[in-house]
């Protein structure tokens, strides 16, 4: 249950950031979409909106918030579950409350504000989705947003970082039916994060060749994963010679997307934006290089034989 940032800008009078620091990581989110904009429905802009920040520590985003709820680290799931109970007036014990590090008054005030909102929105960051509980935390927050719709309009949206990572989800969903963590090794797409997700695959040493594009796992992944990247042939496409390039057997320099390569990128609310490159690059685009590698592979005999359900037969 989500919406576009345009709807947030025009209608949302109650904004919750959960486990994120937009003031430093998405600096224009407040001014462009969520807090400062005036609209037909919120003519006084910031004065017509309430912002709540839920996080484990005080960040620069606290200054922008009307209410700051400091949850105990790793207790997001418990807090969301308590809120789900409280909106339905179910009893909560003091011991359960104490676990979250927040008081009954704080949570009752939060619940009252959520129910009184005309249009509420949860923006959740990696502080929620990448800490203890992981995707179960996101699922719990989405459930809370869904259940709040018994009282008022409420939506939830992840705060995506890393440029076009939203586009990657969208393209994979469009082509395979799944957003990430996909295996084609039976000839059709299968989805199983934990089994097919990259960190797990690399730490276990499952792959015997890695093709890395628009990412630098050599700088961010755990040590066993990096050691595996160096131990098998790795191919890197990047505008810079990265940490991963230095471990790789093949590095190809490509034009940076949006600066010298044209194309499309998705905003976090899944709105596609055309790129307007300003510079001519001496390097080819990612698109051209991947297409050429793919075409070179296609000239070789297909190891799997006849495949009637190839994606190419669906989207040419």
């Amino acid at each position: 249950m989500t919406c576009t940032l345009g709807e947030v800008k025009n209608r949302a009078d109650f904004i919750v950031y959960w486990g994120g620091n937009p003031a430093e990581c998405h600096p224009r989110h407040f001014t462009k979409y969520t807090l400062m904009q005036k609209s037909r429905f919120l003519p006084r802009g910031r004065k017509d909106r309430t912002m709540v920040l839920v996080d484990i520590r005080e960040t620069k985003s606290v200054k922008a918030a009307d209410v700051f709820l400091q949850v105990r680290p790793g207790k997001d799931f418990e807090l969301i579950t308590i809120l789900r109970a409280m909106i339905k007036d179910q009893p909560i014990s003091d011991a359960q409350l104490a676990e979250t590090g927040l008081t009954r008054e704080q949570l009752q005030d939060f619940v009252t504000r959520m129910k009184a909102a005309k249009f509420g929105v949860f923006f959740f960051g990696m502080g929620l989705s990448m800490t203890r509980g992981k995707h179960m935390n996101s699922a719990a927050l989405l459930t809370l947003a869904a259940e709040l719709n018994a009282f008022t309009k409420f939506v939830a949206m992840p705060m995506r970082g890393h440029g076009n990572v939203t586009g990657a989800d969208v393209i994979m969903r469009w082509q395979t039916g799944y957003p990430f963590g996909i295996s084609f090794n039976r000839g059709y797409p299968r989805y199983n994060p934990g089994e097919f997700s990259t960190v797990d695959v690399l730490v276990r040493g499952d792959t015997d060749c890695n093709f890395i594009i628009g990412a630098d796992p050599g700088a961010t992944m755990p040590k066993p994963a990096i050691e595996h990247l160096a131990s098998v042939p790795t191919i890197v496409l990047d505008p810079h010679v990265t940490h991963t390039s230095k471990l790789a057997r093949v590095h190809i320099t490509t034009a940076p997307a949006g600066i010298s390569a044209p194309g499309t990128a998705y905003r976090m609310d899944e709105i596609p934006m055309p790129l307007r490159p300003a510079l001519e690059s001496p390097y080819p685009s990612d698109e051209e290089v991947v297409r050429r590698i793919k075409e070179t592979i296609l000239k070789k005999p297909d190891w799997m034989g006849e495949r009637p359900q190839m994606l190419t037969s669906q989207v040419g």
Partner: peptide
């Protein structure tokens, strides 16, 4: 490769993805 991995796709275009 028997089990190649294609990974990343953040800082690139939808067309390349």
């Amino acid at each position: 490769a028997d089990m190649p991995l294609v990974y990343g796709m953040s800082n690139t275009t939808c067309e390349a993805q």
